[in-house]
Amino acid sequence: MTMATGLVDAPLKAKAKRFGFLRQAWDHRFDYLYVLPAIVVMLIVIAYPIYYTVELSFFTTPPSLQLRDKEFVGIDNYGLILSSDVFWRVTANTFIWTLASTAFAFTLGLGSALALNHEFLGRGVLRAILIIPWVISAVAASYIWKWIYHSDFGLIGAVLVGLGLAERPPNLIDSVGTVLPSLIVVNVWREFPFAMIMLTAGLQTVPDQLLRAAKVDGAGAWQRFWHVTFPHLQGVSTVTILLLAVSNFNSFIIPWIMTGGGPSNASHIWITHIYELAFGRQRWGIASAYSVLLFLTLMTLGYFYVRALSSAENKERVA
C-alpha cells in the first residue's frame, strides 16, 4: 500500500516540483528581465571572445595572409608553445612575478593594516598617503619608476653616487639578473595598499572583547595576533591573496611600459608575451593558445576564489 502510494506519488511529486520551478521562474520573470541586458552584454563582450580565442587557438595564420585565411592545425599551437624554451622561461618569470608580488604585497599590506589599526595621531593622514600608490595611474607610475631606476640618470643612481655609496649608478632594469626583482618592487609598491584596505576592513570584524580578554589572561602581542586576530582574518586573507594573484597574472602595464619584456625576455610574463605574439608578431593562433592556457590558470584561481567567498559566507551564516 505504502509502496503503491509511493510509486504513484513519485511522478506527482516530480511534476509538482517541475511546475514549482516554472512557477518560481514565472514569479521572478521581471527579475530575469532586469538582468537580461547585463547577460546579453556579457555574452557579447566576454563569452564570444572566449569562444573565438579558443577557436583561433586551433588555427594558424600563414605569413603574408589575413586572419580569414587561417588554417586548421589542431593542437599544434599548444605543442609549439609547450616545446618552446622561451615559453618556459616566460612561465618561470610569470610565477616568480606572481608569487613574489602577491606574497610581498600581502605581507606589507597586513603589516600596514595592523599598524594603522591602532589609534594614533595622524593615522587618517598616513592611511590616505599609503593609499596613493594604488590610486595613481599605473601608466604614470611606470614612467616615474622607470626614471627612478634609470641606469644612467636615475634617482636611485644619483643618490647612491652622490652619497659616495657607489661609483656608478646600479644597473637595475637593464640587467637580466635584476630586472624582474626591480619590477616586482614597483608592483608591490602599487598593490600593497589594496591588501591594506582589504585587511583593515577584516580587522574591524575582530571582536574587541576577545582581544581584551586575551590580554587579561596574559597573552602577549604575538599570541593575541596569532590566536585571536589572524583566525578572524583568514577569510579576507584568502580572498585578498587570490585577488592579488589573479591581478598579478594579468598585470600588463608595469612590465610593458618599463621594459617591454626585456632585456632579453628577462621581464616577459605571460600577458606581455601574449601581447607581443599577437600584436607585434601577429601569431594569432599561438597567442590564442597561450591565452587559453592563461585563462585556464586564472579560472583555477577563480574557482578557489569563489570557494573561499562561499566558505566565508557560510561561516558568517553559522556565526
Binding site: 641606469s151 644612467d152 640618470f153 649608478p169 637593464d174
Partner: peptide
Amino acid sequence: VPVSALTNQQADNQPLFLAGQ
C-alpha cells in the same frame, strides 16, 4: 655607452647629449 641602452630610445639619448653626458 649608456647602460640604459637596452631600455632607451633616441628620445632618452637627447637629454643625455644636451647634458654633456
